[in-house]
Simulated scan of single mutants.
Amino acid sequence: MTELLNTLYVQTPGASLHLDGDTVRVALPEGGPRRTLPLLRLESIVVMGNIQVSSQLLSRCADDGRPIVWMSLGGRYRGRLDGPVRGNVLLRHAQHLTHTDRAARLEIARACVAGKVQNSRQVILKGARDVTGQRKNDLRTLAVDLEASLTAASAAPDIDTLLGVEGAAARAYFEALAILVRADTGLVFPGRVRRPPTDPVNALLSFLYGMVRSMVQGACEQVGLDPYVGFLHGIRPGKPALALDMMEEFRPVIADRLALTLVNRRQIGPRHFEKLEGGAVQLTEEGRKEVLTQWQLHRQKEHNHRVLGRRIPLPLLPSVQARLMARRLRGDLPGYLPWTV
Results as ranks from 00 to 15, higher is better:
Ala280Trp: 11
Leu232Gln: 07
Asp226Ser: 13
Thr284Ala: 06
Ile268Thr: 00
Ala255Pro: 01
Val253Asn: 04
Leu262Asp: 07
Asp245Ile: 07
Phe250Pro: 05
Leu276Lys: 13
Glu249His: 13
Met247Asn: 02
Met247Asp: 10
Ile235Val: 10
Leu276Ala: 14
Ala243Phe: 08
Ala259Ser: 13
Gln282Val: 09
Met246Tyr: 08
Glu277Phe: 10
Pro237Tyr: 14
Ile268Gln: 00
Glu286Val: 03
Gly278Tyr: 12
Phe250Ala: 08
Phe273Lys: 10
Leu276Ile: 08
Val281Gln: 08
His272Met: 10
Val263His: 01
Ile268His: 00
Thr261Pro: 00
Leu283Ala: 05
Glu277Ala: 15
Met246Glu: 11
Ala243Glu: 07
Gly278Lys: 09
Lys275Gly: 08
Asp226His: 03
Leu232Ile: 02
Ala280Cys: 11
Arg257His: 13
Pro270Glu: 08
Ile268Tyr: 01
Gln282Ala: 08
Leu232Gly: 04
Ile268Pro: 02
Leu258Val: 02
Pro237Thr: 06
Arg266Cys: 13
Ile235Lys: 11
Thr284Gln: 05
Gln267Ala: 10
Gly279Cys: 07
Leu262Pro: 14
Glu248Val: 03
Ala259Glu: 10
Asp226Glu: 14
Ala241Pro: 12
Ile254Pro: 02
Phe250His: 08
Val253Arg: 15
Leu262Asn: 09
Leu276Cys: 05
Leu283Val: 02
Asp245Phe: 02
Gly287Ala: 02
Asn264Met: 08
Leu262Gln: 07
Gly269Gln: 06
Gln267Val: 10
Tyr228Asp: 14
Ala243Ser: 15
Ala241Gly: 12
Gly230Phe: 05
Glu249Gly: 04
Lys275His: 06
Arg265Gln: 15
Leu283Gln: 01
Asp245Ser: 08
Gly269Cys: 09
Pro227Cys: 01
Leu260Trp: 12
Ala243Cys: 10
Ala241Ile: 04
Lys275Val: 04
Tyr228Arg: 09
Tyr228Ile: 01
His233Val: 04
Arg265Lys: 08
Pro252His: 12
Phe231Tyr: 13
Leu232Ala: 05
Gly287Asn: 01
Ala241Arg: 12
Leu244Glu: 14
Lys239Thr: 04
Thr284Trp: 00
Val229Pro: 00
Met247Tyr: 12
Leu276Val: 05
Ala255Trp: 01
Leu262Arg: 02
His272Pro: 10
Glu248Met: 12
Ala255Thr: 03
Gly279Glu: 09
Pro237Gln: 11
Pro240Leu: 03
Arg236Tyr: 12
Tyr228His: 14
Gly269Ser: 09
Leu283Cys: 00
Gly278Ile: 14
Arg271Ile: 07
Leu283Glu: 00
Leu260Ile: 05
Leu225Trp: 04
Thr261Phe: 13
Gln267Tyr: 10
Leu260Met: 07
Leu242Lys: 07
Val263Asp: 02
Leu262Ser: 15
Val263Gln: 01
Thr261Gly: 12
Gly230Met: 05
Leu276Met: 14
Arg271Val: 09
Gln267Ile: 08
His233Phe: 10
Phe231Leu: 14
Glu248Phe: 11
His272Val: 11
Glu274Asn: 09
Gly234Ala: 14
Pro227Ser: 07
Gly238Asn: 15
Ile254Ser: 00
Pro240Asn: 06
Met246Pro: 08
Ala241His: 13
Arg265His: 15
Ile235Ala: 09
Pro240Val: 03
Lys275Ile: 02
